[in-house]
Amino acid sequence: MSTVPRPAPARTAAAGRGETPRPARAAGPGTGRRVLRRRTYEAVSGYLFVAPAVILFAVMGLYTVGYGFLLSFARWNGFAPHWDWVGLQNYKDLLWQNPAYAPRLHHAAMHTLYVMIAVPLLTVLVSFPLAVLLNSARRMQGLLRSVYFVPYVTSGVAVFFAWQYILQPDGAVNTVLGSLGMGSLSQPQGWLGNPATALPTMIVVTVWGAVPVAMLLYLTGLQSIDRSVLEASQLDGAGWWRTNVSVVWPLVRPITSIVVLLNLRDSLQGFQTFLVMTNGGPGDHTNVLGLEAYRLAFLMDLAPTLGLASALGWLLFAAALVIALINLRVMRSAT
């Protein structure tokens, strides 16, 4: 098959906009200058258009990232005129050397690890079946999708306060358990007041906030599966359960990877829910790494611990990077 060369445009671009057509001129030095001028003009206007984004990224992105990285090697309280350079001391202090910080960090790391295991797992376990059910709903699918999405659009400080009230000793959860004759399961100190239930409860609240997006992602994946594949499996005698486990689940594995990755990252770095609902308590039974970084940065009454907070932030970044790479690797090998 041959390609027919396109004829040169008979009209200038301006003609398309209703301007009087101008005859094409012979190529010469004047034309070259004009082309050059036009290209320069286009290049300049292009740069001008991207300039705001570049400047914002340079100021808000590169500058702050670089600033934060340098800060992790300094001792500073945010206001003193000079930074005291301490080299890698902040990292050493956090990881093992300073007995005032390291044990706290280890404890917070353990809590974070529990959250990182439980939240992605539970989110997948809840959101995938929910998406399968929603996908098979014949009626009111749009309404149900909106209802399931409510936790995501309402998540915020006010909702976390509402959760606090629900979980109090005289809150809705204990009241419902009592009225159902399951009073023995209720928590007299509240679900956030008992060290044994505080962290699991926080995990449940986090999962509640994470399920809507995960479910929507699964729903997108389910709707993109070729129906002929499902029909073929049914013709081969696979039932509902077998189809979902052996056909649908492997096909949505990339989405599972994304859901797991997103939730791992949130579990590793997120702390807002913990700050509002427990402040790491009772005692320090729900302290997590993100919250510890926030505490070191802003809640130490101007103590020179900003460098420690920054170092902890970079450690979290490194951990997130490793997790992302592992996830990428697993995803590649699985698909």
Partner: peptide
């Protein structure tokens, strides 16, 4: 008081 550890 029950739950006082959860109150500010």
């Amino acid at each position: 008081m029950p739950g006082t550890q959860t109150l500010d």
